[in-house]
Design a protein around this nucleic acid. Sequence first.
DNA 1: TCGCACTGCTAATCCGATTTAGCAAACCTG
DNA 2: CAGGTTTGCTAAATCGGATTAGCAGTGCGA
Lengths: 353, 353
Amino acid sequence: MSPRRVTLADVARTAGVSPTTASLVLSGRGRELRISQDVEQRVLKAAAELQYRPNIVSVGLRTGTTRTIGFISDTVATSRLAGDMIKGALEAARERGFMLFIGETEGDAELERLLLQAMHDRQVDGIILAAMFTRTIRVPKGVTVTPAVLLNALPKQPSPLPSVIPDEVEAGRAAARALLDAGHREGIYLIGAGPGRRNVPAGGSVAAVERLVGIREVLADAGVKPAGGRVCRDWQPEHGLAATRELLKKERPRALICFNDRLALGAYQALDDFGLKVPADVSVVAFDDHPIASWMRPRLTTVALPHYELGRKAVDVLFTQIGRDREDDGGEGEVHRVPMPIRLRESIAPPAA
Amino acid sequence: MSPRRVTLADVARTAGVSPTTASLVLSGRGRELRISQDVEQRVLKAAAELQYRPNIVSVGLRTGTTRTIGFISDTVATSRLAGDMIKGALEAARERGFMLFIGETEGDAELERLLLQAMHDRQVDGIILAAMFTRTIRVPKGVTVTPAVLLNALPKQPSPLPSVIPDEVEAGRAAARALLDAGHREGIYLIGAGPGRRNVPAGGSVAAVERLVGIREVLADAGVKPAGGRVCRDWQPEHGLAATRELLKKERPRALICFNDRLALGAYQALDDFGLKVPADVSVVAFDDHPIASWMRPRLTTVALPHYELGRKAVDVLFTQIGRDREDDGGEGEVHRVPMPIRLRESIAPPAA
DNA sequence: TCGCACTGCTAATCCGATTTAGCAAACCTG
DNA sequence: CAGGTTTGCTAAATCGGATTAGCAGTGCGA
């Protein structure tokens, strides 16, 4: 062990005052409690010289606040997306002098319970419950004893917890608008879900439902109707490949709205198989802004999931919860929607004449 | 706030004993200190009924151990790779009842200092210093006051800290062996580094150096010499594309060893441009097992970076450090090498006759 | 019957801060 | 100059456990 941490008592001793006085000065309440300028200076000087830093564990025991928040997600590692959420949360927390505990449940309710316990045992000041893919989740009981926020998730049952989610409806609108802006009116097909409002994959994906709503709304407003669509059970490249191949056997699309970038990757392959060029023959727009989107040739225009911003926002919302005097815990939690910016790249062109 | 946490005093009261006795029983030292069976049972029963859980903050203050470890990396979010490392560390820690603080320095030494401070202030029991890309790092002073481990990194200056890194040399051997096993002897080109021992990109990438060593060793042992190689300044798809195009203008390779999967993605594109088929015309093997490796067509054979295992191993090593009585802190830190498994997929075939 | 060892438990202290209650000295005030 | 107020600081309690020192009560031998 190093030469032992410097404690408040050490500071008090070198300043020649009592620990009480030292504490008062260092917590900024010295003026208020009539500590003289002289003593104040001595304490400050001693603290600086000794490089005193309060022991947060001790403060935590006494005051109950540990300047720590718990971040529990269903999956951290599956994609870089979660990493960005964590990063956003991390930075927002750090700016306030807070640290993050992280935990991963892998969808296991028992593990979730254990993690929540472990965090409560460490007296976290608040908890962020994050989902990798936007979806509704069952809010575990025992979360509400502490300020908490749902991140990228909505409560399955009514709950007072606030949520932070991407604005998927607006994202759908943006994708559709991008095609309309390029002049597309016909031959617009959807890959992954649609064309009907109900044509969504099972599993309660919020993204599928809301993106579809936004797309249909903008198209309808422009008097355009999607020429067709394929629901994909899962949104992996192979499904995009299969669905697009299927489509190309019978139809000749002018534009594809793929429900995520991985589907679009498969769609590119299928288009290539049929000798169709992106974007000259077929325009493609997708969602997520996964790293592959900028590796694909031509680079894919896509509506980005703002993971970093979601993480930051969750911390912001959590802090307003912490700040609040938790009287008003009745009612439904607010839902905060974070904008999804469109990344215009090379996969959209005006329809060939 | 919930109905207040149950404390040891509560347990003692309902069991009708002193807090001391309750503490003794619950810490398992009851037998040793001659607490009667009867009392022991009463305490246990009371604890179970009240669902008592010790307040770790309090224990931390008294004993100095918080069942918490700090995980500081240069980048969390840039790739899913870090996510897997964190996941491995997370699970290994959880199995021992430990939680993880995470922090991200983004290469900023000042931020690193602040994070280390923040973690020390919270009395972490140990620290993992992780790098995203295997490399040598300057060990910040002040780390050694606590048990610590370098993850995916080697100390730049001599240091007593142990390191956990992927076994890149063996990975290089495995990649070369895979080609030899398929019957390749000629026209083997390296993309990203090589062919000479010194032909590595600037920046001190451990991966470049060690993979190259392993590749050259196995090839040399088989009496084979690489037909050529291209150093790529950065290992992104566009560099792989450019380097491979350059190569194909003059040469007709039979096999490519790409120094990572993203280079291989570019190489695939270049090969396609020249009308060459993988693996019929050219076999390709790479490193990392990035998610794209299994999305590429044909699916890429690659030597996997064992991020998950690296994370686990770092925690294991850290615990032996924590367990140790830190007398023997002289000498160099041990280096633990984690095997990199090869993922055989579809991108290697015997050379055409 | 006294002293001693042992058994079984508890009182008191400590970890490092915050916070409440209060005390001595200086200063007024009439 | 006694009595009250202010000023400026400190003692002591507290948070929730772990740990050390020690205290009754019993049994046993001399």
